[in-house]
């Protein structure tokens, strides 16, 4: 994320707004899911709610830390001290975003496995976090792991669509396919910054679909 912040400087303000929008959409969905889980006591709904809550927090972290560093990046001649402070904030925000997003995606992927063993979730979380923390290139590892998790979720939702054959389940499947493509583009963004913009656009498409879907669910 640090290199992206510098490479796609002109897009930085917009991606803060997008991250804030994604955070609000996922927060609304998670609150609704957690309320439904309180009524129905369905374990899958609780996991779905917590998964989206973690994803929401990851976007809040991204928006918040990028917002903090925005004035620092904008100044024409940054001092060494200021630059080092800005970089610390960038890395803090990046790690918060990566860990929370991975946790959310792993919880969602775990939900799709339909297994009841907290140890499986614990090992999945550890296997997800460790490579990101110890890797020399945490961003590439993060996007790779996020792509893999999203791929499992896509498989589940495509299967769900063929089982239900409803517009709403189709929208969910397409949304997760867009999120998966977004992850791939984020992964490729180190090669070409244009992919970072494309990835954000794909994510926007995904969350617009999720939001419309959510509104259709709530419509009486």
């Amino acid at each position: 994320m640090a290199s992206e912040c510098f490479l796609v400087g002109c897009f930085l303000g917009y991606d803060i707004v997008l991250a804030a929008i994604f955070a609000l959409v996922t927060l609304a969905l998670s609150i609704f899911a957690l309320r439904v889980s309180a009524i129905t006591s369905e374990r899958s709904v609780k996991l779905f709610g917590f998964g989206f809550l973690l994803i929401s927090l990851s976007y809040f972290a991204k928006a918040f830390f990028n917002f903090l560093v925005l004035p620092g990046l904008g100044s024409s001649v940054p001092t060494m001290m200021k630059l080092s402070f800005v970089l610390s904030l960038v890395y803090l925000g990046a790690y918060a975003h990566m860990i929370l997003m991975l946790a959310g995606l792993i919880v969602l992927a775990y939900m799709t496995f339909n297994v009841k063993d907290a140890r499986i979730l614990a090992i999945l979380l550890l296997l997800g976090f460790l490579p990101v923390i110890i890797s020399d290139n945490p961003f590439a590892v993060f996007y790779l792991l996020a792509s893999l998790c999203t791929l499992f979720i896509v498989y589940y939702y495509v299967k769900n669509y063929f089982k239900k054959r409803q517009l709403l389940s189709l929208m969910t499947a397409v949304a997760f396919i867009l999120l998966f493509l977004g992850c791939i583009h984020f992964f490729a963004s180190s090669m070409n910054p244009l992919f970072y913009v494309l990835a954000n656009m794909l994510e926007l498409g995904a969350y617009v679909l999720i939001f419309i879907n959510f509104c259709l669910v709530l419509r009486k």
Partner: peptide, 19 residues
């Protein structure tokens, strides 16, 4: 209230592959 909200819950479950 549960009966009243059931259709919403059902739609939510079906669209997100829950339950």
């Amino acid at each position: 209230a549960f009966i009243r909200d059931y259709q919403t819950i059902r739609k939510f479950f079906d669209s997100y592959g829950l339950s």
